[in-house]
Design a protein around this nucleic acid. Structure first.
Length: 113
DNA sequence: GAGGTGACTGCGA
DNA sequence: CTCGCAGCCACCT
């Protein structure tokens, strides 16, 4: 709570997202206790490029499953490529079956379908 | 110290 | 499902 900024906590949760799964900003915010402040999570992602090890921000999308932050990856197609590389289908800047691959930090794991 | 910004969310239509 | 409005809090200048 001192040296570790709110961002660090967000990075930790995002790095816990299993491969082939995605998460929403609100879910992370609620998990951190900042329920209702999903903007802070998105803001943390803006600085995720400064965090190390790198944060899989491409697995984090908004409530609708839209790749709203794809432009922050340097290339607008990079986020889409990374998601498809993990088996996630993306179309029209949107994740297909978003609710099917949605991963909640509260579950930490399991949810094995 | 104050103001502005933003990779969001929930509700109603 | 999507669109628009308003609220929310930490970081930067």
């Amino acid at each position: 709570m001192d040296t570790f900024s709110f961002y660090e906590q967000v990075y930790q949760v995002v790095r816990l997202i299993p491969r082939g799964r995605v998460c929403s900003y609100g879910a992370i915010a609620s998990f951190l206790g900042s329920k209702g402040s999903a903007r802070m999570v998105g803001y943390a992602m803006n600085a995720s490029h400064t965090a190390y090890p790198p944060v899989p921000a491409h697995r984090v999308v908004n409530r609708k499953g839209m790749l709203t932050g794809k432009f922050h990856f340097g290339s607008p197609s990079l986020m889409e490529q990374l998601l498809e590389n993990e088996g996630i289908k993306v179309q029209n800047d949107r994740i297909l079956d978003f609710k099917e691959i949605f991963w909640d930090p509260s579950l930490e794991c399991e949810t094995d379908i």
